[in-house]
Design a protein around this nucleic acid. Structure first.
Lengths: 117, 117
DNA sequence: AGGACTGTTTGACACTCATCGAACAATCAG
DNA sequence: CTGATTGTTCGATGAGTGTCAAACAGTCCT
């Protein structure tokens, strides 16, 4: 129902977050579906290791249009948060929200992602 | 690579297993993809609770053709085992195999399935 | 042999998805 | 203002998906 509005603090340039589902709206099927793709799984794995990253910093062998698509799927399924800063987009894993909604799920998936490699 | 061939013991009627991927061939993306569907998620949840069940015993509000399709997806992704006995098909979760390949993943998903309900 | 029962396969349909190039939008540096 | 940079959106395309009814295939029972 709700749309998150996290305060990112005062910045010189305009900064805000892209729309994303509230914690209570996350569904398991949506999350699983979003993660049923190699590229998105790789993005999530990287985000866990590196923390916040700029969208363009991912080299997945895909066009920027396709990359943008994957980031949108991840955000709309509630897995990631996207912060806008200038022309750049910074993506983070919503680890806390996911843990609150589905305790232990993300850690298990991240662990499996290692075993999968 | 390998195709599992679990021994189901001597029976009066012919009994065998449908083909399924070997443990080492399971991929995280395939598993996640198979679980990115409400009907299949419900099947998996039920299998965990009830143990082995006959395919026809599931009432998901779907035609038998569609049900058959979902069981096929689950089997081919390595999540379930299907045992043939007469005209019936008995399905089980490959909990041991999944645990060996992706430790902790299935329990976390099953737990999340409860939180999702 | 003939039915009854369980499940698969086939063919069809509408819909979704991953992918790309190209056009567009917004911001920043000169 | 002009470019350059970063990403999104649009339109297209080919592949895949969930769904069903109908036909088919085994197996069991009488």
């Amino acid at each position: 129902m709700s749309v998150k509005q996290s305060y990112t603090g005062p910045v010189t340039t305009q900064a805000s977050d892209l729309e994303q589902p509230g914690v209570e709206d996350l569904t398991l099927a949506d999350v699983m579906h979003a993660l049923g793709d190699r590229a998105r799984l790789e993005i999530v794995r990287s985000l866990h290791v590196d923390g916040e990253r700029q969208c363009g910093s991912f080299d997945l062998g895909l066009s920027k249009a396709t990359r943008s698509h994957h980031f949108k799927v991840l955000r709309e399924s509630g897995i990631t948060n996207t912060r806008i800063e200038g022309t750049a987009r910074f993506v983070t894993l919503r680890e806390g929200d996911l843990e609150a909604r589905f305790p232990g799920l993300l850690p298990a998936i991240l662990n499996a992602a290692v075993a999968d490699a």
